[in-house]
Design a protein around this nucleic acid. Structure first.
Lengths: 332, 332
DNA sequence: TAAGGTTGTAAAAACGTTTACATTACACTA
DNA sequence: TAGTGTAATGTAAACGTTTTTACAACCTTA
């Protein structure tokens, strides 16, 4: 493994010159530049990142904290980030936060201590205040799933309200009159849940339907079978269900099958996220698509921007309008 | 951000002593040790990894190259690796090889140049020779999906032959007599494909059925619908299908549905891998389970072993026996 | 008490870069 | 020809560790 000294000696220049060639900031006579480059090539020299990082107090690594690495939804986002990061010669450290605040804090602290170039938080559970603190630590950060424009933190969000509105008004337009809403467990940091609920409400109102409290269900995904059964046992049960997450809709499909309820014959169903699995369920699941790969790619792009132009204030939220993907489960 | 010097000064000792306390190799008087630790705690000192890496010529980072990060099969493996890595205070860099030899090479070279502590290759497409070369570069590596015991490289494989054997003999035991085999595209590095085929053959033989060439299909996943249709159009078509990968079985389910063929009524179906999606398809998919999380965890454990005890030769292949998960699609 | 062994600590070199500052080389002007 | 300005390059310090070497200080033991 050769060092910059070896290159310098072989090229007959000083190490400073080699460094200059490498970092192409200062000017070097074209002739020497070529000479150095040819030696670098010949020796197959690569710069030692540890030394570089030590000297510059900054690595070429970015970190991302996701809620669940084994979930292909986040997998797609990570893929988007990674590809973009490689374009910019950055490496990616992936951390599996598991939706656990302590884990998340631990990873964030670790990455921060490691003089990482920047971090991406995918649907973080940290409170706003801690994220602001991270930002103030001089490390660029980017968020997905939380709009923190007012704190001057760049972020990307999907227009959850619009997505939910699209989904529910689609159901209504096709004649469903009694649309229930199943959301997952309530949690402070799950803004998407709230926004999707708002979209649901607004769509119902705009379609002239009333919001019935008995159609509103909040429960963890594990209990979906009992919860769905209860929902269907209500007097005057719903004729359609909008689930805040595809995960929940999957549970509904499973439970309905066990109960002998036909989807979409007996009840219409729409989800949110467009997990890959939605194409394979039976019936295939109508859902609101979040463009995961693109989201990842954009997150990374924003981060790189913050890293390279730290002063410029493009710290704005980018709102992505989601699309409704119509499949079988809504019966339309 | 404090350095070891700050700690030394505040504790009234030399930096060497602080380093000794930190790396707990040399002995330090208990009293000074406590003093140093309390200062470290007070200042919230963390060692600079770049400096450490530079000095020791080795980082606390390991790398993993997977074929597809957005696939939850690999996501689970990564999760297993990551959790185990964190236990050992190692960080993980994830690389998305995309089953592309050049990408894989690029990542491997990069990681190698970065004085990484070790690497894990998940179903690599590199030829044996290059892997041996990596191993000879003094960096510990671990493989999943390729047995390279004879080259003294630690590895983990699933007993594909056994898994396929279990799947096919299960079908035969329940009365299926004409079992077809659909495998994905052929490729040099896909050893699992070959082994699963062997298991298929052996199971048929042991059950007293003959192997019919017209029941053997090799085709990329994208063409599964035409391929399956052709298979069913054969005179005396099969009454069951064993797919070398769940991905293919998913395609079969979809196509069968379109063609009005009932699974398992008209034809039995078994896959291999146990993707999460298998629980949600209709019918749910009987399949051979690979314990992904555990595999990841074991890979990491083996790697750590190689890193910490470089001389010891535990460079053996670990063969994991897979289980058959019986669901609806086989009709048993 | 002197010789020898332990134990605990310090001083300093080294790891491979980047970069501020210093120096040289050269072309041009007066 | 001397002086000046600029472009090109070199020198050396610094980044924060680990680790080798050295040396005190303190015990044993003869």
């Amino acid at each position: 493994m050769y060092t910059i000294k070896d290159v310098a000696k072989k090229a007959g220049v000083s190490i400073a010159t080699v460094s200059r060639v490498l970092n192409k900031k200062d000017r070097v006579k074209e002739e020497t530049r070529q000479k150095v480059l040819s030696v670098i090539n010949e020796l197959n020299y690569v710069t030692n990142f540890s030394a570089k990082a030590l000297r510059r107090n900054c690595t070429d690594v970015i970190g991302v904290i996701v809620p669940e690495i084994s979930n292909s939804f986040y997998g797609e986002i990570i893929k988007g980030i990674e590809n973009k990061a490689n374009e910019y010669d950055l490496r990616l450290i992936v951390c599996n936060g598991e939706g656990n605040l302590d884990k998340e804090r631990g990873f964030a602290k670790f990455l921060y201590d490691q003089s990482i170039a920047g971090m991406i938080f995918i649907i973080p559970c940290m409170p706003d205040s801690e994220l602001v603190e991270m930002k103030n630590n001089q490390k660029p950060i980017v968020l997905f799933g939380r709009n923190m424009q007012k704190y001057n933190i760049p972020s990307i969000t999907v227009d959850n309200k619009l997505g939910a509105y699209k989904a529910v008004s689609h159901l209504c337009a096709y004649g469903y009159k009694k649309v229930a809403f199943i959301s997952g467990e309530e949690a402070e940091h799950l803004y998407d849940r709230k926004e999707r609920f708002e979209g649901y409400i607004e769509a119902l109102r705009d379609c002239g339907h009333e919001v019935k409290p008995e159609y509103l269900v909040t429960a963890p995904a594990e209990t979906i079978n009992t919860v769905f059964a209860q929902l269907m046992a209500v007097t005057n049960p719903p004729d359609a269900v909008f689930c805040a997450y595809d995960e929940l809709a999957l549970g509904v499909i499973k439970t309905a099958q066990q109960m002998g309820i036909n989807i979409p014959g007996d009840i219409g169903l729409v989800g949110f996220d467009d997990l890959r699995i939605c194409q394979y369920t039976s019936p295939t699941l109508t859902t609101v698509k979040q463009p995961t790969y693109i989201i990842g790619s954009l997150c990374c792009e924003k981060l790189v921007y913050s890293i390279r132009q730290p002063q410029e204030g493009q710290n704005v939220n980018l709102l992505i309008p989601p699309d409704l993907i119509i499949r079988q489960s809504c019966g339309c």
